[in-house]
Design a protein around this nucleic acid. Structure first.
Length: 239
RNA sequence: UCCACUGUGCUU
């Protein structure tokens, strides 16, 4: 199945999810069995398309496959169902997983976070820590999203402190998320503090974009323009 | 041993 896998992977990586599913159908029709490096990609394609019908078809194939207990495959299926809105299917699969690593927990946390189920996010986080799995930078980003809709800077600050305790606040994606979250919670000052505290060598285009967007939200157009200039000075080109 | 490879996360 190697050549099918690389075609499917290429399609997914280029954002052509429908094409990936077409290739998957062709693969099956030609009698080639999908394997552990087929399923995660087609699952991702379904997740992106929020395509429940194909998700169920893929899950059926997974269930009949030798690779049904592969942790990568299972995590991808959990994520696929979550993104299609089938949270209880996702959760049931998650609970039945023989092994779960941080990515598995994060995928399930994201599922609850995406649908605004903060209580379930917190409950799952507690369970995760009880099993000895430590939250990572991805977890912190997800938690930030879970509390974002409340637009409460106190909550953002709590997650921020949590990230500092874990030592993941230096992760650029975490910082970028916090900048946006503080700004959306009307705490521009804290957004600026986070921005200033990132090593200038670690700032990415997303970091700059986040800060510019923050200033724009507050209608601080002069700051936004200065920030934009800073981005250009930093050697970044706008995207 | 290290690295890279298939699953979860950044702004608009």
């Amino acid at each position: 199945p190697g050549m099918w896998n690389s075609k499917i992977r290429e399609a997914v990586n280029q954002g052509h999810s429908e094409k990936a599913l077409v290739l998957f159908r062709q693969m099956k029709r030609s009698g080639v069995a999908p394997n552990n490096s087929t399923f995660p990609f087609v699952a991702k394609a379904c997740a992106r398309l929020c395509d429940l019908r194909n998700s169920q078809i893929i899950h059926t194939h997974v269930a009949k496959s030798w690779f049904q207990s592969n942790i990568f495959v299972q995590t991808a299926v959990v994520d696929m169902y979550s993104k299609c809105g089938q949270l209880e299917d996702a959760y049931n699969l998650f609970v039945g997983m023989p092994d779960r690593d941080i990515a598995s927990w994060n995928a399930m946390l994201l599922g609850f976070a995406q649908w605004g189920l903060l209580d379930r996010v917190l409950c799952l986080l507690r369970q995760m820590r009880l099993t000895g799995i430590h939250p990572d930078s991805v977890t912190v980003v997800l938690l930030t999203h879970a509390i974002l809709h409340m637009k409460n800077p106190t909550f953002v600050s709590a997650i921020h402190s949590f990230g500092v305790r874990l030592g993941v606040h230096i992760d650029v994606s975490v910082a970028n998320t916090l900048i946006a979250a503080y700004a959306k919670s009307s705490d521009l000052c804290s957004a600026e503090v986070v921005f200033d505290e990132i090593d200038s060598g670690l700032r990415s285009v997303v970091t700059w974009n986040s800060m510019i967007a923050a200033y724009a939200d507050f209608e601080k157009h002069v700051n936004a323009v200065n920030c934009y200039k800073g981005m250009l000075d930093g050697g970044f080109s706008p995207d």
